[in-house]
Design a protein around this nucleic acid. Structure first.
Lengths: 342, 342
DNA sequence: AACATTCCCGGGAATGTTCCCGGAAAAATA
DNA sequence: TATTTTTCCGGGAACATTCCCGGGAATGTT
């Protein structure tokens, strides 16, 4: 019907009082008569008054919303992180604006711009696999807007981060393969631009070296994390004159793509080749055999990121010392690495 | 450093011109000298000026953002819909605010309130499994804010909707089971409050009746869509004195939960019991045997919802006639209904 | 009774924009 | 040269809200 939403001025006029009084009534300020307060509250709910957050944010220079930018959310990993963050954020009175960059650097930049335009109070972000330039985050930080990275972080920037112990997780995973008798373990790694790739790769290498196994260049494949490429590279590995007897993948989608190729080729998992993933997606328990993988505390990642934001909001960024939280991972052993495992 | 973001007034002062002129320069209005325009644009980019959307939205009474509220996003269905909507929305110059109600009615109400407070220009929504009261959407509509439902819609409200042909999909699925020799087909249905439950149930019943099979009450189980309950009810069905030889589930997560129970009991799929799901989640292709399911055009659902919003935004809601788009489904046959199928 | 204190309330500035209106200067026409 | 038109710009209201300041009335204190 009416184009115009109910404002405090409408309420004020109706009650023949000033907008200041209405404002005080709605916020439970002390300088207000109980009678008039009651009347205002009554009328407000009768008219279904909804405060205009735009106006409030404008005058307060504070929007009580934070932006969250994730590279993707078709896989349950990032949604879980978001839920964790949302849980603590909403308790603290903040809204969360979710942006999805679709693994595109340009969209990531556009997203941060849009969030900045909406004057969010902070940003929690995980970068795309393409992102090599971090000026857009630097700019936010320079403007005094707290940035917290999680999972896929930017090392150079002096901001708070929450990560999992990728090195430890990868090390455990590979050591597990070694102690169960594997000798030629391949690694499907991510792009060098992502630190998680580098750290997981390091864990892989160190585990091999600890057990005095050779690190062979042609068993290490760095790729861009697209599913199609995963398939191609796994085929390549299997066609090697001396193929690997185990495969450690940077994440579960990659591991699952690998398993499909392997099964398609008629090889047996884990007898002919063992597979281990990373992140314990629900799908890893569904596929047969079950995928051995490194579990991450997904909800806690989001919660911690939110806490790190709350720590620094409302204080001068100058006097805030960025922190890095490292969460622990856990190896989940299933049938893809040990025959007859659950 | 500085708390305060760059505004057009800062630019105006620096250039000794008025804010009006700056505004004109930034928006390419006609009443502007090329020289000054160039100077403004230069300084703006040098200072990394970002327009304050709060102020703009306030004065224009238009935020160029729409809210999207979905019951859940751990499963890829809703994220896919969101991506579809985002695609056409961003082309039209709109931002999308994503809210997730976590299948909680209260959160859904809170979400719509928050979106209203942010003065979104419209809302695309899919309701929770708990939602039986639609006053919060009614209120939006009454305030002149376009609402478009998708997937889980509210029938009573006179707003635009996009759904898939649930009836047809269910009918096809059940007919497929019948023509492949199944006689006692159970149905794990959703709560009566969701229309998709009712329509899929109707498809199930009509398919049975077309092929002159009895509709047995104890083979139809309506439940609240929680995974735990699914497990319990499937066990119950299998323990029946005369157990079913096929199971049609309202969605893939339910079907997959059922498959796990069935396999756990040592029964063979599809020899002992066939299973069919709905929505073709990626997981349905991963599990063994592959899950026969009804595919929905997920991205198109989002796209259509967005189109329906764009149709009615900027016009008087009085003169808009709500539409309902019905998208077609497709049966995907896999090994869970036919032995040795892909 | 005179003064101080408390209790409420209204006025108005400020937030960062957009847009309309009027007007000065420059250019075009007579 | 005088008049009209065009070009360009500044002033100021409006959007919905918060918050500070001042002040009148009621209550309390000496």
């Amino acid at each position: 019907m009416k184009r115009h939403q109910v404002t405090i001025i409408d309420i004020a006029k109706e009650l023949n009082i000033s907008k200041s009084t209405v404002s005080r009534a709605l916020h439970g300020h002390q300088d207000i008569n109980e009678q008039t307060k009651k009347k205002v509250l009554e009328l407000a709910s009768r008219l279904d008054y909804q405060p205009n957050l735009l106006a409030t944010s404008l005058v307060m220079s504070k929007s009580y919303t934070v932006g969250m930018v994730v590279p993707e959310f078709l896989t349950p990993f990032f949604p879980s992180v978001i839920m964790g963050a949302q849980e603590v954020m909403s308790k603290a009175g903040y809204n969360v604006m979710i942006c999805q960059s679709n693994e595109s650097y340009e969209m990531e930049v556009a997203n941060t711009k849009a969030l900045l335009a909406s004057r969010v109070d902070g940003i929690l972000a995980s970068v795309t696999r393409e992102t090599r330039n971090f000026d857009h985050f630097q700019a936010l930080h320079r403007k005094g807007i707290p940035v917290v990275f999680f999972n896929r972080v930017c090392e150079e920037l002096e901001v708070s981060k929450v990560i999992v112990d990728d090195y430890e997780g990868a090390f455990m995973a590979v050591e597990h393969l070694i102690t169960t008798g594997r000798k030629r373990i391949a690694h499907l790694a991510g792009p060098d631009s992502l630190i998680i790739s580098r750290r997981r790769l390091k864990g892989y290498i160190d585990a091999l070296q600890k057990h005095i196994l050779p690190v062979e260049e042609d068993l290490i494949i760095q790729y861009d994390l697209t599913p199609e490429k995963a398939t191609i590279y796994v085929k390549h590995l299997l066609d090697l004159p001396n193929p690997p007897d185990a495969l450690f993948a940077i994440n579960d989608p990659t591991a699952i793509a690998a398993m499909l190729v392997i099964k398609d080729k008629g090889l047996r998992i884990p007898q002919d080749i063992a597979v281990v993933g990373f992140s314990n997606d629900p799908a890893s328990a569904l596929i047969e055999p079950g995928l051995t993988t490194v579990a991450q505390p997904v909800f806690d990642i989001g919660r911690e990121a939110a806490y790190l934001f709350l720590e620094q909001v409302d204080i001068d960024l100058e006097e805030y010392k960025p922190q890095t939280k490292v969460l622990q991972t856990k190896l989940i052993v299933r049938g893809s690495s040990i025959p007859h495992a659950v």
